[in-house]
Design a binder for these strands. Structure first.
Lengths: 204, 204
DNA sequence: CGATGCCTCACCCAAATGGGTGATTTTTTT
DNA sequence: AAAAAAATCACCCATTTGGGTGAGGCATCG
């Protein structure tokens, strides 16, 4: 993941600036910082962030929960609570809004980054289908395919045509076809769709 | 879910005891707590746990990864990493070991239970090959496709040819082709493999 | 009743795909 | 250095697939 767009909802200007500073230092390509619920809702609609860092306590009120509910209702986003409270009641209330985690104040840069990374990873794990990677495939079949063949299998998985594959690999379409024939033989199938179906059931 | 056997691999005796305490309070029927890699490997072989909670940092060394590799290589088990903020950017390393998730320290009982439950659920889910069902698909696309079209999309997903589909549905191959054209138009794709790729990314 | 949507089917044509054979070059392994 | 494996490419041919057009039957809905 190259560009991460972070929406920070934090009423305390010092903390907000601190977070913005840390994120800017790293390769997080964009951050939007807002200080209240209204701006947060607006930013959600316009900025399409990848993750939201959400202070529960916004200007003395627990508006963070309402932002969380808006996220759950209308978007499809992981969010982390920024909180200095660890009281039972807050946690009880917070967990019904299904955050990906909590960042407890005070926190340092490592806290921030690891929390974001883990949240994004866990969220992706829950939301996304298995991505075809070499590590994920059954080893017996893995062993049979060459590096090149596996790349082409990934392309098939992504819906590419032979022509597109040949252009992407700077080889002739005949070469692609030869590779595919080899793949089909090794997987014991007779078409690209069968190949996809076959490796799909081998995915964990 | 009746009896869950949890293997806890945690070198910090305080945290280990804390986890054991939480698990005992709930109806988790068995826990085995070990403090180092050697004992973890022994416990894996003898205790047949249902899930492993794995501290990455065991006695100052990242032995947790090696335990994870052992699990992946020789067992068939979900595991969760127990990790703290101080461990910097472990995700890059950790994700290649394919954990079911992470439990961030400090965590409370609710974190612990929900993480375990979610991990067990997701692990069970992913053992089954992805089944294309109507409920799983994005509703916008769902709405566009007719019942028949969706059935044929499932067949494409399973790698069937037009001929096989026509035989299975007792209609002519021309009818199948007409349906497919309609599907492609609605999904805005130009081939069956593209259609598969498209619906695949819409699956949860 | 007319409109609409769905399922059915046919015909045509172009493009893509699958299968077979054989070959050269490069890389890796032994 | 020799052998094996991998990657490259070119034919040929049959089949499959995709795209366009048109059309009949059937049900539902306004």
């Amino acid at each position: 993941m190259s560009e991460i767009n972070v929406l920070v909802v934090e009423d305390d200007p010092l903390i907000a600036e601190d977070i913005r500073h840390h994120l800017t230092n790293a390769d997080y390509s964009a951050q939007t910082v807002v200080h209240n619920k209204a701006d947060a809702l607006a930013a959600l609609a316009t900025e399409s962030p990848d993750i939201v860092l959400l202070d529960i306590n916004l200007g003395g009120k627990l508006d963070g929960f309402e932002v969380a509910e808006a996220i759950n209702a209308h978007y499809h986003l992981p969010f982390l609570y920024l909180t200095s409270y660890s009281t039972k009641s807050i946690v009880e209330q917070a967990k019904f809004t299904r955050p990906m985690g909590y960042i407890l104040k005070p926190f340092d840069e490592a806290d921030l980054f690891s929390s974001i990374e883990i949240a994004l990873y866990n969220f992706a794990q829950r939301q996304k289908p298995a991505k075809l990677t070499r590590e994920l495939i059954n080893e017996q079949i893995l062993d049979k395919l060459t590096e090149k063949e596996f790349e082409l299998l990934e392309h098939i998985f992504d819906g590419l045509t032979n022509k597109l594959m040949s252009e992407r690999h700077f080889v002739s379409i005949n070469t692609i076809k030869t590779h595919l024939k080899s793949i089909y033989g090794k997987l014991n199938v007779h078409s690209r769709t069968e190949a996809i179906a076959k490796i799909r059931v081998l995915l964990p």
